[in-house]
Simulated scan of single mutants.
Amino acid sequence: MERIGALVIGAGPAGLMAAEALGAAGIPAVIAEAKPSPARKFLMAGKSGLNLTKAEPFDSFLSAYAEAAHRLRPMLAAFGPDDVCAWAEGLGQPVFTGSTGRVFPRAMKASPLLRAWLRRLDGYGATLRPGWRWTGWDGGAVRFDTPEGARAVRPGVTILALGGASWARLGSDGRWTGALSGAGVPLAPFAPANAGLAVEWSAPMARQFGQPVKGVALRAGDGPWHRGEFVISAKGLEGGGIYALSRPLREGAPLMADLLPDWPLDKVVARLARPRGKASLTNHLRKALGLDPARLALLMEFGRPLPEGADLAALVKALPIAHSGPRPLDEAISTAGGVRWDAVDAGLMLTARPGTFLAGEMLDWEAPTGGYLITACLATGRWAGQAAARRLQAA
């Protein structure tokens, strides 16, 4: 039976930050990772530009986490957007803030940041064990399937940072739920967050697959109108404008689109009242309203048979978008659900298993894309790592 001081299970952002917090306290961590290499989802997120955090007032930032905000407040106050920026720059990766407040590394990739981070952890004496899949507990021992066969270790403290249940091929497969529920840990069911919508398109819509939809406002149920871009795909609708409404949409709220959010209704009515002549209705809508092919296709797809006059104008301003709910859980960028907050203490330690801490997306919180996800993973990882270090040092 191998005995170690600190064990971190999961080498995503939360787990690596927990290992960093332990290392900063003088405690070298053993990091067990089921995949052959660390931080696969982190690297995938960085392929289109790694959005680390969001530059905005703290209360606005915190509000993105909805009812979990009061739970996350101390962790984000201790390691919030400014701290994330300073941390990245301390790893030699300068950052910049885009026009919407999103913060990115100047390199616009995750790989340089990850390489520098792993070098820092190596300097702290951390050891990465790839291919080590956690299979549960045997009393005080932690069991793994490894490339060399079954292994067990007995750590002084353990931090679980195993992710949610989306993008299983990258490591977040949610298989840990069986071991935790078996240990009496209360769980909230997983649900897709930041997920696309499934739509059964008519054949003519195939011409629009891959086209971005810009200049549109969306509303879920009675909620506020929200500006954001999205993409028409073969499977439905994808993109930030849709992801921001994931929660009310998965709870059954109807989706509406304002195709001309900068125009008041009376302007749309006046433009539609212009003489049409011999122009087809499609050309009339295109010329009178300036609708591009993507928005025009959406109007035709969800509005036919089109009414006339003021009724058509009202449809342009509030077009019902028929859909079949969110795409499957594994296609979501992140997940809601996981370990309930009443299962952990203020230091994120499981009350059912003293000495075992949680971090990252395993906990029951969700947030939109835009830097909120990574920031909370880093903040909870740091918080759990510091709490674990205090426990180990006090033993």
Rank of each mutant, 00 (worst) to 15 (best):
M1K: 12
E2Y: 08
G5F: 05
G5W: 07
A6H: 05
A6M: 02
A6Y: 01
L7I: 02
P13E: 04
P13C: 09
G15K: 03
A19S: 00
A21G: 04
A21F: 00
G23A: 08
A24M: 07
I27M: 04
I27Y: 02
E33T: 03
A34Q: 15
P36L: 03
A39I: 07
R40M: 10
M44V: 12
K47F: 00
L50R: 02
S63L: 08
S63K: 14
A64W: 01
A69E: 07
R71P: 00
R71S: 13
R73W: 09
P74G: 08
L76F: 06
A77V: 06
V84I: 06
V84Q: 00
G92A: 10
Q93E: 15
P94R: 02
F96Q: 13
R102K: 15
V103H: 05
R106G: 10
A110Y: 02
S111H: 11
L114D: 03
L118H: 01
R119Q: 11
A126C: 15
T127N: 04
W134L: 08
G136M: 10
D138Y: 04
R143W: 01
T146H: 11
A150K: 14
R154F: 07
G156R: 05
V157P: 00
V157R: 11
V157G: 00
L162N: 03
L162H: 09
G164H: 07
L180G: 05
A188T: 14
L197T: 06
V199P: 14
P204E: 13
Q208I: 03
K214A: 14
G215S: 12
A220R: 04
F230V: 07
I232L: 15
G239E: 05
I242N: 02
Y243V: 09
L249S: 08
L265R: 12
V268T: 06
A270T: 06
A273V: 10
R274T: 13
P275T: 02
P275E: 06
R276L: 07
G277M: 12
L281V: 13
N283R: 15
L289D: 12
L291H: 11
A297S: 15
L298E: 15
L298R: 12
L298C: 14
L299S: 14
M300L: 15
F302L: 12
R304G: 01
P307Q: 10
P307K: 07
P307G: 11
A313K: 01
P320Y: 07
A322Q: 14
P328Y: 05
D330H: 13
A332N: 03
A343Y: 11
L350Q: 06
G355V: 08
L358Q: 08
G371K: 05
G371W: 01
Y372D: 03
L373Q: 00
A379Y: 01
G381K: 00
A384C: 03
R390K: 14
